[in-house]
Amino acid sequence: MNTKINLFGYELKNPVIPASGTFGFGYEFAEFYDINCLGSISLKGSTIASRYGNPLPRIAECPSGLINAVGLQNPGVDKVISDEIPHCKKHFSGKLIANVGGHSVEDYTSAVAKFNDCEDVFAIELNISCPNVKGGGMAFGVDPTTAHDLVVAVKKISTKPILVKLSPNVTDIVAMAKACENAGADGISLINTLLGMRINTKTGKPIISVTKGGYSGPGIFPVALRMVYEVANAVSIPVVGMGGVSSAYDVIEMMMAGASAVMIGSANLIEPFACKNIIENLPVVMKELNIQNLNDIIGRSFK
């Protein structure tokens, strides 16, 4: 039975990758289990300058998920490279995916350039879909022309494959994916969180300090699956699927929709062993569904 997959020429032992922002820089989870079981790790979103993020509260409960408005809290790319990645590498022997956010094209290009010499990173995930950063982030992810120009600029300076992380908060997800592919993106990851809000009915005020945040969790899985399906049908570069994936069955369903690899997000927050459990269950579910090789099922729903 084969759970190995290939992403940008790298062999991952399985398609399961913790999603950016739900796994820190990996080492927190190394206290709970041997994180070497993971296919890779998408690191906490990093920006050129350090960021505190949004005021508290940043979290709200939702049916089948949560809203977060962390706001890209991170120590800045330099510290990520000098401190966080080496700390992570003490526990993880595989290659990592760096995740980069920004407010301007220059923010992105200067941050991405810093990872060029970072051997532990095999790909850069470009976060053009963070709903929680004022005046930036998602602005690049809702207009195909803006996204195209950003990806062109980043591809010019990057020596690593670029995975563009798309926002579901758009009318036409396929147009966004195609714009990125045409600009030279090496892959597409989707979906980021859906914009949402909750109100405290006792006070009548929003729970989240900045009013709105990103909704994630099992509730968004059908939306994510549909978008992965549409994008995988339309582009010829690899698609990494995410959004509410919580079980080995979800991983397989996401791959059948067209994902070459699958990221696990919110599930890590309520179940620290989520990724480990999913990876251990994957061969069991494959056997049950008579799947010998995961690569055979990528896009099975439309092929």
Binding site: F23, L56, I59, Q73, I207, L269, I270
Partner: peptide, 17 residues
């Protein structure tokens, strides 16, 4: 006290200065 996402340091949902 804080509204927490994970409770074990992963999500940065409860960070103070």
């Amino acid at each position: 006290e804080a509204r927490m996402g994970c409770g074990f340091g992963a999500c940065m949902g409860c960070t103070i200065q």
